[in-house]
Simulated scan of single mutants.
Amino acid sequence: MVQLTDLLPLEKWVELENEIHARSGLESNVFNTDGIRITDNKVWVNRLCPAIKATDKGQAFICAVAHMNLANQAREEGRPVIEECDAGLMKIVVPISVDGQFIGAIGACGLLPAGGEVDNFLINRITEIDEETVSELCEDLAVIETNSAEEVAQFIWEKIEAIVAET
């Protein structure tokens, strides 16, 4: 089976992650089929996500679940998916497929959808982070408009199609 590193070396995947972040303000990571990040590149785009991911339950029941659900949807539909994670933040997942075989995905997340709100109660229930602390961590959350998210998804999709076409 083709691996992500057969398409690009890790440093080129990092460059793409950084390019997506610079263009969108979203945190961006490349994931293998098991939902594991293939690079150690980390750019936090808010104060809430690192607090959620610092708890085992937050990582397992908010972040990982959102990624796996959206990656499966993107794999099945063969196109980018834009949804909110359970915390209420925007998440974009773009499938990476070679000859019809799903080999991974790019996820971009961490901004608040326009008109959306963070689910303080759910975050508290899962992570045990105090709801007031959650509110404080959300005070400076950047917002992303739906059309901007769609443009980012299209940009990533076109990048992936070009990378796959070169193999």
Rank of each mutant, 00 (worst) to 15 (best):
D140W: 03
I36N: 14
T133F: 00
I38S: 02
V118T: 08
A105W: 03
E15W: 00
P113Q: 08
G25N: 06
L70N: 13
P113W: 01
R23W: 04
T133C: 09
G110C: 00
C109D: 09
V65R: 11
I126P: 09
D99N: 15
V143T: 15
L7P: 10
N147Y: 11
I163K: 03
L48E: 11
C63H: 06
S28C: 05
C63A: 09
T39F: 05
A22M: 04
E166V: 03
I156L: 00
W157A: 01
D99I: 04
G88Y: 04
L26H: 09
N124W: 09
E132L: 08
E83F: 02
T127Y: 05
N69I: 06
L10P: 02
E17S: 00
A74Q: 08
V94Y: 00
G58R: 02
H21D: 08
A54S: 15
M68Q: 13
V152N: 10
M90A: 13
F121Y: 00
A162H: 07
Q3T: 13
V2K: 14
G115H: 02
G107M: 04
R37F: 07
R75Q: 14
H21I: 04
F102C: 11
G88L: 00
V98A: 09
R79E: 14
N29Y: 04
D140T: 06
E27M: 04
N69C: 04
F102S: 11
E150L: 08
R79P: 00
L4V: 12
S24E: 07
M68H: 10
V152F: 10
A105P: 14
D40F: 05
N18A: 04
I96F: 08
A162R: 06
G100H: 13
H67Y: 12
L141E: 05
V14N: 01
I103H: 07
I52P: 09
C109Y: 15
I123Y: 05
V2E: 07
G35M: 03
F31E: 08
H21T: 15
F61K: 12
I62R: 03
F102P: 13
G25W: 11
G78S: 06
E117I: 02
S24I: 00
E15S: 12
E15L: 10
W157E: 06
V30L: 04
I20L: 06
A64D: 15
N29E: 06
I144N: 04
G88T: 04
P113L: 00
N18Q: 12
A66I: 00
W13S: 12
I103T: 13
T55F: 02
Q154Y: 07
E166W: 00
V93M: 02
E83R: 15
I62W: 08
E145I: 01
I38L: 07
N124D: 15
D56W: 02
L111Y: 02
T5R: 06
K91A: 07
Q154D: 10
G110H: 09
G35W: 03
I36M: 14
I126T: 11
D34C: 11
F102R: 08
H67G: 09
V30S: 12
I103K: 11
A114G: 03
E77Y: 08
I62H: 06
